[in-house]
């Protein structure tokens, strides 16, 4: 794509949850809309579309990003992880199970963003204290839970992922 100006549609190729995917995008198409509308991956939710709410958080090349603040063409050739890739099979990921067990969601709109942001934290810091969890999730907004149960779920999932008690 380098060396020329893209004016109009192009093919974007990326690896989503380990699977090669491709679809058409014009430059202004946000990665969030590309995932949902072009690839049918509607687990990534769109809240504010201005980078404030965190609902659309995914990981691109291992980094958490707000997919509403990245154009799909920018993710060309990248590795993308969405909530659909969290559970390896029929069984939920420990984070998902902990969210369920601790009632860390009600309407569920923000949940996929919280899960991806939490996953990023726990991969870097396997045993975070509550303040660290709250600081890391400060960019994700939940209007149902009041956050207490979300923090409790992340604490429980961290313990399970460290090989301690099952969340």
């Amino acid at each position: 794509m380098s060396g020329r100006i893209l004016d109009g549609e192009t093919v974007v190729r990326l690896v989503v949850n380990g699977e090669e995917r491709r679809a058409i995008a014009e430059p202004r198409l946000l990665l969030s809309d590309f995932l949902r509308h072009e690839l049918g991956l509607t687990g990534t939710h769109v809240g504010c579309e201005q980078g404030v709410c965190g609902a659309c958080t995914v990981r691109v090349d291992g980094r958490p990003v707000r997919s509403c603040l990245l154009f799909a063409v920018q993710a060309d050739g990248c590795r993308v992880e969405t909530v659909e890739g969290l559970a390896p099979g029929e069984e939920l990921h420990p984070l998902q199970r902990a969210f369920q067990r601790h009632h860390a969601l009600q309407c569920g709109y923000c949940t996929s963003g919280f899960l991806l942001a939490s996953l990023d934290l726990l991969e870097r810091e396997p045993d975070p204290d509550e303040a660290t969890i709250r600081a890391h999730l400060a960019g994700n907004v939940c209007r149902c839970t009041g956050y207490q149960t979300i923090v409790a779920a992340v604490v429980a999932a961290a313990a399970e992922l460290r090989g301690e008690a099952r969340a």
């Binding site: 794509m1 380098s2 060396g3 020329r4 100006i5 004016d7 430059p27 202004r28 946000l30 063409v73």
Partner: peptide, 13 residues
């Protein structure tokens, strides 16, 4: 909301 159309260049230098 969605951004207005624009042209795009991913430069390497």
């Amino acid at each position: 909301m969605k951004p207005a159309s624009f042209r795009y260049a991913a430069v390497e230098t």
